[in-house]
Each structure stands twice: as C-alpha cells, then as structure tokens.
Design a protein around this nucleic acid. Structure first.
Lengths: 253, 253
DNA sequence: GAGTGGTCTAGACCACCCT
DNA sequence: GGGTGGTCTAGACCACTCC
C-alpha cells in the first residue's frame, strides 16, 4: 500500500504554543519583563483564551513564568537551588538557615504523623510551624513535630513566644544520628498557599523528613516547597551552581 | 459598622468538588475501582465537564486517581517509594536495581550537560538511555552521561549491544567518592512520556545527579520520574515504609 | 461502533491589584 | 474604574481503547 504516514500525529495546539512561547522567552524577553495579557496573546496566536492558558499553565509549572491575579504574567528567573540535604542542615532550625517560626502548639498529631514518629495515636507532640525565606521570598512552609519524649528537659511553663525556641534548643542538644527524607508532588492547601503567596492548589514539592537519635525517631517534619520557584538540592558537596533551566538539561536520545 | 463578613471567601467549585471526591475515594471506593465517566460525574454534581475535570486533574496530580484515554478513571494505589538516595545506589547501574538499558550512543551533549560534567562544549560523551521499572511499571526514564575520560579502558570497537554494558562496567571499576543531587518539577517531553506510558506534558520529577571520583565529575544523569506514581526517597536508612497518602501527613497548625 | 478521556471554542462573570 | 488573571459554562470534535 505504501501509505506514507508522516505527520500522522497532529500536535495539540497548546503544546505547540508552549514551545513557541518558550523559545520566545529565551530570545525576546528579559527576566522580570511582563508579557501581554492573556486576551491579547490569545488573539495574536488565533486561539481561544482557554487554549492559551493551557500553554501558560505548563510554562508556569516549569518555572518559566510567574502569573499573579490582578497584576499580570512575568518572565520568571531561574529556579532557586534550595538545600534540603543532610550535612549542613543538621537538626532543623540549627544554623543560620533563614527559617522563621510562625507558631507553636502542643497538640495531638494526625495518625500519619504518629506513624512517622512511632508514637502512640493520641499522644500530644510539639508542633512548630515555620516558613523558609530565600532572597526575600517565602519558599517553604513547614510543620515540625517533636514528641515530648525527645525533649525531656523542657520547662513546663512556657509562654507562646518562648515555646518554639525552647523546643529547638533542647532538640539541638541531642546527637543527630541520621536522617530520612522523601519528596513527592502535591498541591498547596489553603493555609500553606497563603504563607507561600500562592493560590490554593498550586503545585508544591512535599518533603517528609525524619530525624534519628538513639536509634529512634526524635523528630519529623513535613515541608511544603513552592514547585515553581525551587529546585531542591541534596548531597554532601553543597548546592548546584547551575544557571540553566531543567528543560535545557534534557534531550532526546 | 459591624459588618459580619463570614463566608466572604466563596470557595471555587472545583476546589470544593475536589475535597468531596477525595473523601468519597477514601470511604466509598477501592483501589483500582473505576469511577463513573466524566460526563456522568459532571451531571451528578451539577457542574460543567470542564469544572469537574479541573478537580480530577488535581486529584491525579496528587496521585489519587489515574486516568487513561479510551479506558476511564480509576482509583490509584498509594505512591511507590522509589529510592534515589546515596548509599545503596552507588554507581548508576550497579546492583540489581531494575533498570533496563534502552539505547546508547556517543554524541555531543547539550551545553547544560557539558556544564554539569565540566567538559568542553563540543566534546562527545557516552549517552545511555535507561528506563527504571518497579512492580511491572515504568517509573523513570533516564539519560546517563559519561565522558570518555572517565572510562579510559573502554575498547574502541563496540557493537551497539555491547556499548552500554561496557561503559557501565568501566564506570563501576572506579571509586565513587560522592554524589550530588537535585530535584525539580517538570513536564514530560514527548520521548520520555512515551516510555513512561503517559501523555506529553505529564508532571514529572526531574532528578539531576552528579557522580564524583578523584575530585572530578565522572558521570551525570538526568532522570525523569512519574510524579503521579512515585515518592522519591533519600537517606541512609532505606526507603520509608509509609502506606498513607501525603495529604494525610499534613494538617493546619 | 460505542464509550472513554483529551482538546478546543466563545463567550460570561468574579476576585484582585493598581491608580 | 479599568485591567489583570481565575473560574465557569455548554457546547463541539478528536484520539484512543475495547468489544
């Protein structure tokens, strides 16, 4: 029959649009520059606004664009390398790590956290809420869980303001023996989104950490990183110093 | 004035829909069970199909659902814990790690990879394409780059079939001194998507690794993991053995 | 061919930011 | 108030899978 089936896979419009815009961002725009609004862009490319938005959403997911309601769409800077690896970090809150404590309560943790800690179901744990800031931007919201058993020397009468520092101080006095970590994709809950200056549902990288001492889990944390602006770095050798976008590091084989 | 402004923040429909569906998945469905089709679901909830799809997309992003064109929407099992940490892995390809080599060429790497390796711009490197399989499913597509300088003992006359094993064998003979790693969110390119059994643009976790020997970068890799089905684990203590979804580990403070 | 999810359209209104 | 992105609608057609 000899049916030549070249071009038999029509590329979706939004996909083609995305590559066109991606190339344009490289060649015709500077970081921080604002793009034309969505209605104009859609008209210029001859597509519906929803189709254009599909392309913009992907580019935002990949960290190429930043969109803010009421303001506009701007070209995003390269992602920040954020160290979450072992070594330098040591105990959470140690070192000058640009974390800000937002709140601290002693409450019963959800079942999944209790499983992480290996504590009983209904046991209260110290719960510290913190925000990580880099270059003036919030990059992560975290909940740090510390069972009372891990900080036996903690005074009983603590003002809310003194609570978190005291727990962290006691924690740092222990010897850190090891760390566990997991990363997965999630979407920002309303409270995290607010602290990350994003809308609810924004894509985030959820980092779950366990800190060991004496063969037991002394603390655990769940950190929610902005997926659009952050590249998480692990490893003893320190953060990458790469100035390229991840797309550039991938090619067909 | 005393204007009570309760409920002044109307939740988007798709967001409310998402939580309703999420709860229903926990209580009324089993893993692997197929949901009603999108048109029926939309009608049942009294919303447009596009609105329902927005909710389904988020749930798929969070690993709760799996959708396949022409088939339907099913309830996804909990994400697989995939170890990408140091230690056990050692050199890429060492150990019984369920990687399958798909191809191998010697070609000039893109500029970003050359920067990662610290090699010259136009230098050819061994490029090995591999796929990682777990529980019968492809979970990652990888490109492993090895400069010829790292494998000086490599024979010159290699058949395509013998190329990749020979490069890996030479690599494993070196002493691995350290590893660097970074994780960021991306969307699957067409070629990766095909090997991951997903559509182009599907969300992926891109892991960029550098392997050191003799104080230099001996190899580098870019691995593309399915974000919907994988939870990446790091750490010396081995993979987490958590059976909960990440949503369950997060709560308001 | 019937049924599924994926793409696309052309509109509308809303929430938010700025001036 | 005017402009931006965010949400929502009610349709249509396409690509794919399975019977």
């Amino acid at each position: 029959m000899g049916t030549t089936q070249l071009e038999s896979v029509p590329e979706p419009k939004y996909w083609h649009l995305k590559t066109v815009l991606n190339d344009a961002l490289d060649s015709e725009f500077e970081v921080g520059e604002i793009l034309p609004n969505e209605r104009d862009l859609a008209a210029r490319f001859g597509v519906a606004r929803a189709t254009l938005r599909q392309a913009l959403e992907q580019l935002e997911l990949e960290g190429r664009l930043q969109r803010r309601r009421g303001v506009g769409t701007t070209v995003a800077p390269p992602r920040m390398g954020v160290s979450v690896g072992p070594s330098a970090n040591a105990w959470p809150g140690a070192g000058r790590d640009s974390w800000e404590t937002v709140g601290c309560v002693e409450a019963v943790a959800p079942a999944a956290i209790a499983a992480l800690l290996g504590t009983g179901r209904d046991q209260a744990v110290h719960t510290i809420r913190r925000v990580r800031v880099m270059r003036g931007q919030p990059v992560a919201a975290e909940l740090l869980y510390v069972p009372p058993a891990s900080v036996p020397g903690l005074p009983g009468d603590l003002s809310p303001a003194a609570h978190a520092p005291a727990v962290l101080r006691e924690l740092h006095a222990l010897e850190l023996e090891g760390e566990d970590r997991a990363v997965e994709l999630g979407s920002a809950r309303a409270d995290d989104a607010k602290q990350l200056d994003r809308l609810p549902g924004a894509p985030v990288l959820v980092v779950t950490s366990r800190y060991y001492t004496g063969g037991r889990v002394a603390a655990a944390s769940v950190s929610t990183y902005r997926a659009d602006t952050c590249r998480l770095t692990f490893g003893d050798a320190g953060a990458f110093e790469v100035t390229h976008h991840q797309q550039d590091t991938r090619q067909a084989s």
